[in-house]
Amino acid sequence: MSDLKQVIVIRKKKKGGHGHHGGAWKVAYADFVTAMMAFFLVMWLVGAGTKQQRAAISEYFKNPSMTQGQSTMAPSGKMGPGGASTSMIKLGGAMDLPKGPGDQQAFAKPTTAADAEKQAKAEEKRRLEQLMKDLKDAIASSPAMAPYKDQLLIDITSEGLRIQIVDKQNRPMFDTGSGALKPYTVQILHELAGFINQVPNQISISGHTDSAPYIRADSQYGNWELSADRANAARRTLTDGGMQADKVARVVGLAASVPFDKADPSSAINRRISIVVMTHDAAKAVLSNEVAMTGAAN
């Protein structure tokens, strides 16, 4: 028995065989977080959009293919293949969410001629309102324009944005009985020229006098001629200041026929230059009347 060799058994403890998969949960968690971010982004977009925009998103998820969608409510964009063409998110990642009632109309593409005309008028109105705001801000903040802010009257009429430069008792725009502009009037018109160029609308320029009769020595030159000369001088000064010459649709002299202060026709404020940034309809009416009058004369 002493010759028997003792057998020694060595047991080795094996380590876990799946240790290299220990980080798999991180990938799963990252996928979960990404999915939740996408979900909340979609919910935010749906909550921020209009009824038509939500219909467009719904159509996209129902039919994200190249074939025509079958949504029961028409999306805000034009009818086209698939739903992606009406997405609120532009290619490149730029967000285009509405900022107000006016901006929401930008999503709605016109489906009829009447809709297109309505949308064009709304856009034109916003454009003229923005121009009025820019002008008022510039007058309030510009040291060069500030001294004349009480001589610049800006409002919106049925014809468009009206800018009136009026005389003051001790600060006339023109030399007495002349179409020659004062240096500060030239400065004002040069400032206005750049703003008028910001919009595509055409303009109308009219000259006005007070009711005081003005007759030059030759007796053939009165308030009608004087008001027309002053309106034309304003036109030349605007174009010298950089305004596009083809924006002018009409230049007229109205003498004292349209007083600003009807209660006092002799008031200095009645002596003025009126520049109207016309709406498309107003410009069309002006040109149509001119064509009709030319045709009648022929």
Rank of each mutant, 00 (worst) to 15 (best):
residue 202 Q to N: 12
residue 19 G to P: 01
residue 262 K to Q: 12
residue 162 R to E: 11
residue 217 A to I: 08
residue 263 A to L: 10
residue 158 S to K: 14
residue 117 E to P: 01
residue 75 P to R: 15
residue 179 G to D: 14
residue 239 T to Q: 14
residue 71 S to V: 09
residue 112 T to E: 10
residue 145 M to Y: 08
residue 139 I to F: 05
residue 208 H to T: 05
residue 198 Q to F: 08
residue 264 D to N: 15
residue 18 H to V: 09
residue 289 N to T: 13
residue 199 V to H: 07
residue 283 A to W: 00
residue 255 A to L: 07
residue 251 V to F: 01
residue 58 S to Y: 11
residue 137 D to P: 05
residue 104 Q to S: 10
residue 87 S to K: 06
residue 265 P to S: 03
residue 91 L to K: 12
residue 96 D to F: 00
residue 75 P to N: 14
residue 256 A to G: 02
residue 238 L to E: 12
residue 267 S to H: 14
residue 66 M to V: 09
residue 64 P to G: 02
residue 84 A to L: 08
residue 125 K to R: 01
residue 165 I to W: 03
residue 97 L to R: 08
residue 98 P to L: 05
residue 42 V to M: 12
residue 111 T to I: 08
residue 102 G to C: 04
residue 59 E to L: 14
residue 188 I to C: 01
residue 139 I to E: 08
residue 196 I to K: 06
residue 229 D to Q: 15
residue 17 G to F: 05
residue 81 P to A: 11
residue 58 S to T: 13
residue 217 A to Q: 14
residue 137 D to W: 04
residue 257 S to I: 08
residue 229 D to M: 12
residue 295 G to L: 14
residue 45 L to E: 01
residue 102 G to P: 04
residue 117 E to D: 02
residue 163 I to W: 02
residue 80 G to I: 02
residue 213 P to L: 08
residue 45 L to N: 02
residue 151 Q to G: 12
residue 166 V to G: 00
residue 91 L to W: 07
residue 132 M to E: 06
residue 243 M to E: 00
residue 20 H to N: 09
residue 295 G to W: 07
residue 140 A to I: 04
residue 2 S to R: 06
residue 115 D to W: 05
residue 53 Q to A: 09
residue 156 I to N: 09
residue 96 D to N: 00
residue 213 P to F: 11
residue 174 F to R: 09
residue 296 A to Q: 14
residue 40 F to D: 01
residue 220 Q to F: 07
residue 28 A to P: 01
residue 167 D to Y: 02
residue 100 G to L: 06
residue 182 K to H: 04
residue 61 F to K: 09
residue 124 E to M: 02
residue 54 R to F: 03
